[in-house]
Design a protein around this nucleic acid. Structure first.
Lengths: 149, 149
DNA sequence: CTGTAATAGTTGATTTTGTAACTAACAAGC
DNA sequence: GCTTGTTAGTTACAAAATCAACTATTACAG
């Protein structure tokens, strides 16, 4: 039963999940309480805020998020007047999404919160930790999923 | 619209979530395909495999997981004969959980997979990245959730 | 003792996600 | 033109997560 050479607390998928959940809680509280948004909602909002006009599938690719999740997030954001849809006249399958003034305001507000939150999170880390963390996370986030027998 | 001084791809809660999801996919595939387990299931299995006899709430505390999630995971694991429950005779509210031989076998198998997976993940990182990552994640995972206005 | 609070764990109702199938519009071969 | 395939996005149904309420048992104050 007792085991050698394996520590759950050091297993990356486990540790990453714990850190991710723990360090998103306070931010989640804000976008949920202030704007009734879910995780995918704020991500869509931020993509539109940062990059301007995008289609649902462009957001899906950038955010590595399934199209049904995006579709439902856009639906919620549209109902609440944060986002506006516009059909592309050349290709009528495509919808261009933009933030409404209300959406822009929410984005600007949350972006400030995010900025402060980021600072607070980084504050607890040493230079080396922050640097190694960022660099490693970027690799891990981009890496192709491994293969297993 | 265009924004300065904020990068979504560097926002820790976002980057962490991406890295966490991406680096758990292949492992998830294994415990799902081989044993039909969900995320909480393998976590419970590993806790019992690593630390021996535990109660549901002890696992909940260690894994920072809500008791209903644990309860349902234990239910699934018990149905499939990976785990056995035993009432505590002193305090009959408490149930002690242990792995069955079948549970131990599954644990041993998955632990080996985890070990190899961990090695593969770490392989893509430099020494500094791995060190900074681990140290930073541990802090982030333990930190008290921040406070916001 | 007895009533009230606390703890371990489960259950049920609601919300959210995941998977697959679907509609609508375009593209390309023939 | 017409068939076949592809892409954008939605919808339907099943699986899973969340949150609150619940049972059963113990603790403890008076």
């Amino acid at each position: 039963m007792k085991d050698d050479k394996f520590e759950l607390a050091l297993f990356l998928p486990y540790l990453l999940a714990q850190a991710a959940e723990n360090s998103s809680l306070a931010f989640q509280q804000v976008y949920k309480d202030r704007y009734g948004m879910l995780r995918t909602d704020w991500r869509v909002l931020f993509h539109l805020g940062l990059y301007g006009r995008l289609t649902a599938s462009e957001i899906g690719v950038r955010a590595k998020t399934h199209k049904t999740k995006i579709s439902r997030a856009v639906q919620r954001l549209t109902e609440r007047r944060f986002v506006e849809r516009a059909r592309d006249e050349q290709d009528r399958r495509v919808e261009h999404l933009t933030l409404t003034p209300q959406g822009l305001a929410a984005y600007a507000d949350l972006r400030e919160v995010a900025r402060r939150y980021e600072a607070a999170l980084t504050d607890g880390l040493t230079e080396q930790e922050a640097a190694g963390l960022r660099s490693a996370l970027t690799k891990l986030a981009k890496a192709e999923p491994q293969r297993f027998t």
